[in-house]
Every structure is written in structure tokens, then in C-alpha cells.
Design a protein around this nucleic acid. Sequence first.
DNA 1: CACTTTAGTTAGCAAGGCTAATGAGTTAAG
DNA 2: CTTAACTCATTAGCCTTGCTAACTAAAGTG
Lengths: 148, 148
Amino acid sequence: MPSVEQVCRTDSGLAASLRVSVARLHRRLRMEHADDVGVSFGAAAVLALLRREGDQTIGQLAAAERVRPPSMTRTVSCLEDDGLVARHPHPTDGRQVVISLTEQGEELLAAERRRRDAWLARRLRELTPDERAALRQAAPILERLSFS
Amino acid sequence: MPSVEQVCRTDSGLAASLRVSVARLHRRLRMEHADDVGVSFGAAAVLALLRREGDQTIGQLAAAERVRPPSMTRTVSCLEDDGLVARHPHPTDGRQVVISLTEQGEELLAAERRRRDAWLARRLRELTPDERAALRQAAPILERLSFS
DNA sequence: CACTTTAGTTAGCAAGGCTAATGAGTTAAG
DNA sequence: CTTAACTCATTAGCCTTGCTAACTAAAGTG
């Protein structure tokens, strides 16, 4: 029974290991998130993106989250129903719709931010400093891997 | 607009970044997988697990994949319908069911393995050696993060 | 032997992806 | 200037894949 470390020595082994780890960790994070009040996992990501990058069109949000436009329309509609984002007409292009965080959205984001990351942050604190450093190096690479 | 590297300096920033990256990469990997023939993303993970760890009960598979037993029952039933795994009675405990890879399952796994990891492995090859080394260090930590 | 616990299953529900088709707005060609 | 082609967002509807609740059968336990 080969260990994770051994499997990772080859590129295809590393690929296989990352694929499985990412899938499991994703499911786990979703589960932890379910305990939170308010918005869903995907919707929270959109709020965070709006906070980081400012106003975005539906298309931009969809591209950033690696999702098709209809999926993003649905997510944004949910957020709008909850009063967390607002739709505005695009200043020069009547086809596009600009989405912005409402004040209520900002508040929810600020209030829930610590709680949303609580589980993972706690798990991270249980790691050794070296392990955290390893993840710190890996995070931006993982970030880039999902873009072609 | 803070960079990923800056955000990651704090534990909660690292948690937030990992949460988002993992979600996006997971969606991306699912999409790449959809082009493959045969079995679904989750089912492929079960086949790989059976190959790595040998025969397992439904409960063991569910625990390993961080999924509830009914979900694993369904996944295993699909695989059984395709003739890729087989159910056997547990030797000493009549309640449990032991799942094993069939010869057909082994063949599919061997034939598809390279293809399944092709996209991610290609992306990994585009990274610098240092970046690959960083992921190699992070992989076992990510693996452990999904377990409490 | 009755009672509780455990493993797996069945049934039904919800979240969240997707494609296809539509409508409105923009751009380009003639 | 008008018409054709394209783009963005939307609507409608499907599929996958998680979940909980309720059930059955088997195994422990008093």
C-alpha cells in the first residue's frame, strides 16, 4: 500500500492525489459551510469576489467562478432576493448587467467572514508551521491551476 | 486589490484562499472529467480507492470518501450495474457487504488512468519544478485536512 | 428472549451544475 | 438605413449527486 508521499513523486501520481484530495476537501468544506446561516457555498464565493474585485457583470462573475452564465444568473438572483447584491444597467452596453454588493451584503460578509473560515482556519492552526508554510506556497499555484 | 500571496499571510486569509481555490479547481476537474467515457467523477474515485486499498465495505468506502452511506450505496450500485465492482457477503458479519473490483473494473481503471489525469498532469508539467515541488509538499497535507 | 445498536437499503428532497432556446441590444455589411 | 450576425442575460427544463428519514436484517447485550 503506497503512501501519499510515494505516489506523489511522479507527475501523474501527484495529479491523481491532488484530484482526489481536492474533491474530498471540497465536499468537506461544503458540509462545514451548511451549518452557517444565510447564503449557500457558491453564493458566498460570489459575495467575496465582489468585495475583492468590485462591481462585475454576470459574464465576468461566471468566468471568474468557472461557471456557465445561466448558473451565475441563478446564484445572483438568489442573492438579489436576499437583498445582498443589486443589479444595475451597464452605462454603455444595454445588454450587460452590473452587479454590486449592497450595504447589507457588505455587513453580512464582514459578520460571517470569520465564521465562514472558522473550521478550515482551526484545522490550519493544528498543523505545524512548516505544513502551513507548504500550503501557503501551494495556495497561489492551486489558484492558477483552475485557469487555462 | 491584494494579491493571493498577501492574503495568505494570515491563517484566515489562507483558509479563505484555499476554500475558494479548492472549490474552483474541483469544478474544473469535474468538467474535464466529463469528456471521459465510462464512469462519473465520484465513481472513479471509488474504483481508485478499491485498487489502492483492496476490498472495502460500503461503510468504509463512505467514510473514506467523506460521504453518507446512502450516497455510497447508490454509487456502488451504478458501478455494479456496469460490472465494474461486485458485492460479496461479509465472512463473519451478515449485515455488512464487501465490495471488490471486478476484472473489468481493473481493466477500465488501468486503461483510463492515464487519460483521467491527463488534463491536470499536463497543467502540472507547465509549472516550474519549484512550483511542482510546492504542490508535492502540500498534497499530503490537503489529503489530511479533509479528515477530522 | 426482548432490547438496542449497527449496516445497508429505499424513498424522496434540495442544491447546483448543465444545455437549448429566447429576447433585447450591439455591431457589421451591403 | 436596413438587415444580418453576434453577444449578454435570461428562462425552462434536465441531470447528477449530495442529504435526511424511515425501514429491514443482523449482531450484540441484559
